[in-house]
Design a protein around this nucleic acid. Structure first.
Length: 514
RNA sequence: GGCCCUAUCGUCUAAUGGUUAGGACAGAAGCUUCUCAAGCUUUAAAUCGGGGUUCGAUUCCCCGUAGGGUCACCA
């Protein structure tokens, strides 16, 4: 890091360090603070981060707040929180002011933009826009009428006025020509001269436009690779013209494929259910799973491996393998991915998470469960088998699939009856027998395997369903639940015997034996 | 509309001139202790269309088609 700072200070800002051997990779994620972070933004940040880390480079978080109109209060904090949750850590960002290149917030860098704007003015490459909004609108309308593309440069003034900082400043693009350039993902790209036009560098309000600010910042921050979505491809000739005007080498362009809506007809936008990434945190997705899945929409290492921890992702990631075509973000597969990561997690961590999730459900309702460390330990594997995401625990609780671990089940006597039995006669017989077997199991052997071993021969001989269904129902009071041996082991001998007794009493009350 | 980009199972994707076009998610069937899960096994499912180049094209070229992006004092 020291060497980077040195490099940044010693470097002549007019000569970009892009591509300089040994200069180190510098990437950035540069969102505008206009709301929450969605999937597309998170993936862009992730790729930039992975590439920097893979190359022992630097990852910068830069806030592009040059549109004061659209800025949403709290966005900057929200973006940082999202990145932190995902484990996408930046080396320089808005949270510190001692960066070698100054602030990472564009509104605090206005001097730099003015300075470079003035340089362009001095070189005769920028000029104040003499037209009013109405005049511009009229030019556009005229071009529309004539069915030709509107180009500002056709209206470029012959004599540039003096820029006083309060007029919009336009860049005088190079003589129209076809531009060709290389993109690390898309390969060789080109565009006709229609793509080239004079564009605004500085707005009337004194703020730079994205088109200008990002280029100046990338230069001053030593950015070597620009990761961004494909909507910027068509602006690239303008950027190239500006790089030329500034006399600098452009960084490497890395164009990311779009993330599409599930009908594949459009880019996934906030209106199409692109969620705030922090929503996934609320639902109990693991950040590693999220990152793993995000990485795989638009990139693949070329192997059949799909589950990666962040460290392996960094090792495997390669911009040469980023896809050209867009892809759909499939939440169902994300859920599967989350389960895979859940299985890889240390069990203590899962226990703590499950405990916290149950407790928050308790707080949100009037449940009063005695959630001891022992019960958390025993039910964790059972829950883990049944969930993909922690939010599934909420569903389990809502559907009363956890109650029987904490309180006596309530159910109707007839529910104890196995579907093939005509009445409760055999149910009672089997329950009594199983109770005897259970009672004989010493405490030292009260575990799932031994309970099963003790009870199995009887169940096997007398009809598994006929024996096990009533037992399981007596223990859980539910049609669907874990198997009776698992339940018994969790509940403990005392509770098991008591619940069987309750079941037998229910049977007797329902159909007293003659 | 001009300019530009993209195109393998429903979805995410592998295969960069030679494979029975592979894997995963979702689906279907089956197995495993009664139920529910989990797990395992099996199965169905794709190279957008048409021309080239080549002994041979998913792969290279051209033309279509479809979809996307962009044409702001938004980023």
């Amino acid at each position: 890091m020291i060497s980077l700072i040195k490099a940044l200070f010693s470097k002549n800002p007019e000569s970009s360090n892009a591509g300089t051997p040994g200069s180190g990779v510098v990437t950035r994620f540069a969102p505008s603070p206009t709301g929450f972070m969605h999937i597309g933004g998170a993936r862009t940040a992730l790729y930039a981060y992975l590439w920097a880390r893979k190359n022992n480079g630097t990852f910068i978080l830069r806030i592009e707040d040059t549109d004061t109109e659209r800025e949403v209060e709290g966005s900057i904090a929200h973006i940082q929180e999202t990145l932190k949750w995902l484990g996408i850590n930046w080396d320089f960002g808005p949270d510190r002011k001692d960066n070698p290149f100054g602030s990472c917030i564009q509104s605090e860098r206005l001097d730099s933009y003015r300075q470079y704007a003035q340089k362009l003015v001095d070189k005769g490459l920028a000029y104040p826009d003499p037209y009013t909004a109405e005049e511009l609108a009229a030019f556009r309308a005229q071009a529309d009428l004539e069915k030709r593309p509107f180009l500002y440069r056709h209206h470029r003034p012959i004599n540039f006025g003096v820029w006083n900082g309060t007029q919009a400043l336009r860049f005088k693009v190079a003589k129209p020509r076809r531009y060709k350039w290389h993109d690390a993902v898309r390969g060789d790209l080109e565009a006709g001269e229609e793509a080239l036009d004079d564009f605004i560098l500085m707005k009337k309000d004194g703020y730079p436009t994205y088109n200008f600010a990002h280029i100046i910042d990338d230069l001053l921050m030593g950015v070597t690779h620009i990761m961004r979505a494909d909507e910027f491809i068509s602006s690239t000739p303008k950027f190239l013209s500006l790089y030329e005007g500034l006399g600098i080498q452009p960084p490497t362009f890395v164009t990311l494929p779009p993330i599409l809506r599930s009908d594949k007809t459009k880019k996934l936008g906030k209106r199409d259910g692109a969620k705030d990434i922090l929503e996934y945190r609320k639902e109990g997705f693991l950040p590693d799973a999220m990152v793993n899945f995000l990485a795989l929409v638009g990139w693949n290492p070329g192997t059949e491996r799909e589950v990666f921890n962040p460290k392996d992702l960094i090792a495997e990631f390669d911009i040469a393998k980023i896809h050209k075509a867009g892809g759909v973000f499939n939440e169902e597969k994300l859920r599967w991915m989350n389960k895979e990561h859940l299985k890889l997690m240390p069990i203590e961590g899962v226990r703590a998470d499950i405990k916290a999730r149950i407790e928050s459900n308790e707080r949100a309702s009037d449940l009063k469960w005695n959630l001891t460390p022992e019960i958390v330990k025993t039910i964790t594997p059972v829950i883990l088998d049944r969930i993909e995401v922690y939010a599934d625990i909420d569903t389990m609780i809502a559907e009363r699939d956890l109650d029987y671990y904490f309180s006596e089940p309530s159910y109707d006597a007839l529910s104890l009856k196995w579907k093939d039995e005509p009445d409760l006669t055999n149910t009672i017989k089997h329950l009594k027998h199983i109770r005897g077997i259970m009672a004989d199991i010493p405490d030292s052997r009260w575990n799932e395997a031994d309970i099963k071993e003790a009870a199995w021969p009887y169940a096997d001989a007398n009809g598994r369903g006929a024996v096990l269904w009533p037992l399981r129902y007596a223990l859980s009071g539910k049609d669907k639940s874990p198997n009776p041996f698992t339940l018994s082991a969790i509940l403990g001998k005392e509770t098991v015997l008591r619940r069987i007794d309750v079941a037998l009493k229910k049977c007797a009350d329902h159909a007293p034996l003659a």
